[in-house]
């Protein structure tokens, strides 16, 4: 019993230290070095290749689409003899073990979408030490030990949404902000981008900012209460269509005209937008960054220089090009800024 306690305590301490490291390390340096090209001639190898993809999870539809893009792109390259995929189920400890397994299989390159930022540092460091180049995608690690980092800037996404909203309101009005999970990297980055943008619009008043845990149920419940609390809500900034779609439900049921609401390329939001006809904008958080990651991986194994940092350009969907993206026949949780051919879409 005592021994179990000791192990638990040590484990806990370990965690605290890791968390501390994560907070202490600045991550801004990515942005400074984003123009830099990395020489990859040392990683060049003649095919066939073995590539490992360590995914954090496929626990929501965005991650499903993301993973599909990775697998789709991999399937297009006959040079890849083996393409191993692991799913860490959002558990960093499992992901550490996954990477160990992949390395043991003798992979030539590792693509990793980390479950949390700092916890996966040892895994990527070990891979790089063994001479296995690492492509980090979607979420970052806090060590420098990788070749390239592919993402789509959450900061930019939040910023563009906020700018659109402020412009739509003519620089004047009361808004409500609905974020994802408190402390989660993407949520905080999007919020930071939005807040920076709003500094330029002194006429915009943020009535309240709440975290809704990327849950449609919570989005609707929180919005329903806020509608009671504030008689005049001119706009809603939602960092994702998950709580955004819940909020739109609440706004619709309140019986007043729906104010401008921001969203992303999730089909559910696009469908609601098209059906209800409110003012909307969708800024995509491209699911195809997974595809880009595989392309960069192939460049690396071919010895072609790759940028240290890749920001996949987001698509901005407005009233004008909405019809090009929305598909009333497809499921709610499809992401429409997709580069998957029809047969690669998740099938029932």
């Amino acid at each position: 019993m005592k021994r179990v306690l000791v192990v638990l305590c040590v484990g806990l301490l370990f965690w605290i230290v890791l968390a501390g490291v994560a907070l202490a390390q600045g991550w801004v340096k990515f942005l400074d070095s984003d123009k830099m090209l990395v020489d990859t001639s040392m990683y060049a190898k003649t095919p066939p290749w073995k590539i490992g993809f360590s995914n954090a999870s496929i626990s929501n539809s965005w991650r499903v689409f993301f993973a599909r893009h990775v697998e789709y792109e991999a399937s297009k390259h006959p040079e890849i003899a083996e393409f191993y995929v692991t799913d860490a189920q959002d558990n960093p400890t499992k992901q550490l073990a996954d990477v160990e397994d992949l390395l043991a299989k003798g992979i030539d390159l590792l693509i990793i979408s980390p479950a949390t930022e700092a916890a996966l540092n040892p895994a990527v460091e070990k891979a790089m030490e063994k001479g296995v180049p690492v492509v980090v995608v979607d979420r970052k690690v806090t060590t420098d030990a990788y070749v390239t980092f592919v993402e789509s800037s959450n900061y930019q996404m939040g910023k563009i949404m906020a700018e659109w909203l402020a412009e739509k309101l003519g620089g004047k009005g009361n808004i409500v902000m609905l974020s994802g999970i408190a402390g989660a990297g993407p949520a905080e980055d999007r919020l930071k981008g939005a807040m920076d943008a709003l500094k330029n619009y002194p006429g915009i008043k943020v009535l309240e900012q709440q975290y809704c845990e990327w849950s449609p149920v919570l989005g609707k419940q929180v919005m329903a209460t806020l509608i009671q609390k504030y008689p005049q809500i001119d706009g809603v900034w939602a960092d994702s269509a998950l709580q955004g779609s819940g909020a739109i439900e609440a706004l619709q049921e309140a019986g007043k005209p729906i104010p401008p609401v921001t969203g992303e390329d999730m089909n559910r939001y696009l469908k609601m937008w098209k059906e209800m006809g409110f003012e909307g904008v969708a800024v995509s958080f491209p699911t195809w960054q997974g595809q880009v990651a595989v392309q960069k991986a192939i460049d690396i194994l071919n010895g072609i220089a790759v940028p240290r940092y890749v920001d996949c350009p987001r698509v901005i969907i407005t009233k004008e090009n909405l019809d090009k993206f929305v598909r009333m026949d497809l499921p709610d949780e499809f992401f429409m800024d997709s580069r998957l051919p029809e047969e690669w879409l998740p099938k029932r």
Binding site: I58, S59, S61, D332, E333, F334, P346
Partner: peptide
């Protein structure tokens, strides 16, 4: 439910 929906729920 994840196997059934392939991660992306559908229907209405």
């Amino acid at each position: 439910r994840f196997v059934y929906t392939k991660g992306a729920p559908f229907g209405s």
